[in-house]
Amino acid sequence: MTSHYDVDAVVLDIEGTTSATGFVVDVLYPYSRSRFAALLTERSGDPEVARAVAQVRAEIGEPDADAARVEKALHTWLDEDRKATPLKTLQGVIWSEGFARGDLVSHFYDDVVPELRAWHSAGVRLYVYSSGSVAAQRAWFTNSPQGDLTSLLSGLYDTENAGPKQEAESYHRIASAAGIAPDRLLFLSDRPGELDAARAAGWHTVGIRRPGEPYFEQGVGDHAQAGTFDEITVSRSTT
């Protein structure tokens, strides 16, 4: 069933929504895991790396933790699939370089990119809100199988510049930063807790349910749902 939304912008989750979670878990996670040690030893002076390392030390309560201890914490968080900001930051650095080198190419479901192009052409702004860092998001959309898609996007949000994805305040923050009224925003995600938080902030929501994704069986609660992006019609009234 097609749902129609008259909004000014669509905000996109990535994993399970635009792209297969399996690709992230099976391709990107091992890629970062194998490169943490080199990053922590060779690039410890980089401001972004140093800041993330300080955050790891603070989180584990060990202000003097060495590179090996920091790496161990990162591996543990990866095993637990924790959305820890310093983990996402360091993964973003590694993935950005992997994409730039051509080691990595991102994944999008076949129905996604044509709809993003159509919505963009209709004057609807597109944003990303993912637990992956802004750097990782930029690399993801720059290095797609369909080429560089970043020209379609008006902004990128993560847990650092917006806040946790299951808290309504994060969605208030995004609406304010984008300068768009909450009731003119549509959020697409496969996670019920995120959809609940967006709705609590006054947004429109559609739960994306794709077979094989982690949240498919659980469903999206009482939110509108779609199996593919082409089941969603988005337009922007100019009156």
Rank of each mutant, 00 (worst) to 15 (best):
M1H: 12
M1G: 12
T2F: 05
S3K: 09
D8E: 14
D13H: 07
I14G: 02
T18E: 02
T21A: 10
F23Y: 14
F23S: 02
F23G: 02
V24D: 01
V27F: 04
L28S: 04
P30W: 08
S32T: 06
A38R: 11
A38E: 11
S44L: 11
P47V: 02
E48T: 10
A50T: 02
V53Q: 04
A54Q: 07
V56P: 02
V56M: 04
A58H: 12
I60C: 04
G61R: 04
P63R: 08
A68W: 08
A68M: 13
A68D: 15
E71T: 14
E71Y: 12
K72W: 15
H75W: 05
H75Q: 13
T76A: 13
L78S: 15
K83P: 02
A84G: 08
T89F: 09
Q91P: 12
Q91V: 10
G92I: 10
G92A: 09
G92W: 10
W95H: 15
E97S: 10
A100M: 15
G102Y: 08
L104N: 11
L104E: 11
V105K: 13
Y109I: 08
V112C: 07
V112L: 06
P114Y: 05
R117N: 01
S121R: 15
A122G: 05
L126D: 03
L126F: 01
Y127W: 07
V128N: 01
V128C: 03
S130Q: 04
V134R: 14
A136C: 06
A136R: 15
T142V: 15
T142S: 12
N143V: 14
N143S: 15
S144I: 06
D148S: 10
T150G: 00
S151T: 14
L152N: 06
L153R: 13
L153T: 11
S154D: 05
T159P: 06
N161Y: 05
Q166V: 15
E169H: 13
Y171D: 03
Y171H: 10
A175V: 02
S176M: 15
S176D: 11
S176P: 14
A177D: 09
A178V: 04
A178D: 03
A181Q: 11
A181I: 09
R184P: 07
L185V: 08
F187I: 03
L188Y: 03
D190G: 00
D190N: 00
H204Q: 11
G207V: 12
G212T: 02
E213T: 04
Y215C: 09
E217H: 08
Q218E: 07
G219A: 06
G221A: 14
D222P: 12
A224T: 08
A226Y: 13
T228H: 08
D230T: 00
T233C: 07
V234Y: 08
V234A: 14
T238R: 13
T239K: 13
T239F: 15
T239P: 13
